[in-house]
Design a protein around this nucleic acid. Sequence first.
DNA 1: CTGAAAGCGCTTACAG
DNA 2: CTGAAAGCGCTTACAG
Lengths: 339, 339
Amino acid sequence: MRKISMSDIAKELGISTVSVSKALNDKEGVSDDLRDKVKNLASRKGYRINTSARSLKMDKQFNVGIMIAEKYILDKEAYYFTVSGEIIRNLDQLGYSGIMEIVTYDNENRGILPRFYNENKVDGIIVLGQMKRDYLRAIEKVSVPIIFFDFYMKQFDVDCIVSDNLFSAYTITNQLIEKNHREIGYVGSIEATSSIQDRFLGYYKSLIEAGISLNPDMIIPDRDELGQFIPLQLPNPLPTAFVCNCDRVAHTLITTLKKLNVRVPEDCSVVGFDNSIFSTISEPRITTVDNNIPSMVETAVKIIVKKIKYPERIYGRVLIQGKIIDRDSTAFFEGGSSS
Amino acid sequence: MRKISMSDIAKELGISTVSVSKALNDKEGVSDDLRDKVKNLASRKGYRINTSARSLKMDKQFNVGIMIAEKYILDKEAYYFTVSGEIIRNLDQLGYSGIMEIVTYDNENRGILPRFYNENKVDGIIVLGQMKRDYLRAIEKVSVPIIFFDFYMKQFDVDCIVSDNLFSAYTITNQLIEKNHREIGYVGSIEATSSIQDRFLGYYKSLIEAGISLNPDMIIPDRDELGQFIPLQLPNPLPTAFVCNCDRVAHTLITTLKKLNVRVPEDCSVVGFDNSIFSTISEPRITTVDNNIPSMVETAVKIIVKKIKYPERIYGRVLIQGKIIDRDSTAFFEGGSSS
DNA sequence: CTGAAAGCGCTTACAG
DNA sequence: CTGAAAGCGCTTACAG
């Protein structure tokens, strides 16, 4: 059974393919009557448009590329899975498909661009999660619109969608301070990603406003240069609370504290970030920040689609507000202002 | 700056586009000398092939569709993320891109096929994870090759790649029996998916061979008809060991047991399935089955690509061997043969 | 409202 | 080894 084309429909109805095209695409220039007839026959015959022909003519693919660095896959964490699922769903509503591509460590190092770009399969690109500067430099020169999702980088003029990390971290740290905590640690390697850094700055902003000075011993790295997690080196004495740059490491921290017979939250409060699965499977469940992925994604998709239409428009750094999810991992500090 | 085409290269070199096409595609019919000249100029000018034109002419998209039901995304579990990442990487090596699509609950109920099919964007489809029978019925009739990944269904003639669940469950249950366990529970809703059912059967096979009769009270459901997890109703008295249909529920079980002051593995052994993140973040770390995703994916991708070339070939139900990962959640049962 | 004609950028079968 | 010609299935600008 051959695929059926517009001209098959045209022949059967005794009209031209032009009219079929107009009818099917809801363009003006056909009577409502004819339009209905065409649409009916098309659906009865199971007509499916030949996208290659349309794309060739219109010079548009109706595909958006989604790039993810290999490390985020190996992580076995679902964060970017949720995100990409959401992206794909939003794209679909606007008539686009999502083509995913994993940038392997090797390709990232060698600056090899994704197939979907080299073969002109996409009209725009969303970069999901931070990658090497040099690679981003290469991808930046690409001749289709591009946006960064969930990170940004200095000296890049690329539009990006990020969670308002600084403000969220500031707010959640404020909450700890309101609960009488004065010794508060931060867990995260502050040079690893823009998110970790901004969350640190929000934490610091809160300390400044509370008149608490920053103690370098209280900043605990959680990963190495490759992004691999490392064992946590906790300070002694411990602070009475920790702000963690993500739920995963908050979960690790809680496990570590338990082994030291430190009770959470009675002896030590812990807060996380991302509202990931780690925040709910942990015991106690972790107070955290929900980054509002649906809103981030909706914005990102809207912007990339706009940029496909109007490539010269600039959106800059778009911040999306997060929301604190109160759970069971924080408590009022009773020890009091003994210092 | 206009996109550059084969004819641009041809003009600059004073040759025909036919020769350019042959040279770039490594087809015979051009001298090595000319081929080099063409390739050099193409790369200097940053030529990228126009896939639409190629696809239109060849009636081939060089894209494979990956369908995932919405529920697997909302799960916040990374299992299918790892899988789809791996699929995409394998496809890339064979010259294909992967177009993902999330089948929403709504579309699944209404039998709405993915955009990538309706718009002829893909040459073949991989269905990632079990979906409603009626939906699969609709997708089965599709006019491109299709395979099921990680599940199968009776009365469907669709080729599928599955882990050898029965055999893995059989083996891991045997290990418990060798450790002197005679009362062994199974956690999983055995009608929910083919995997859960087959793992149950492997567990049962092991019991049969050990002369242990099946006790219905020892089969504990873990999810409802929608696939949502439900609280575990543990039997009283408890068995001395549990085989869980996945690591996630094994993790839940361990948490539940801890609350009952049952120590794992001293008082009760627990094994899981999938070697997912839950098996390593759990305390103790869970003995589990690694399904060998790389091998499953490699096979799946090879088969779909073969089927694109030779649609009539049949591969049937392809089983991939899993591997037991021994960790800390099982122990020898000392209670002994008192019954 | 309707349609004939041109053309998007490739690949393939064929002729030289 | 090399290339002229046809054609894949659409859309668009234009004429009627």
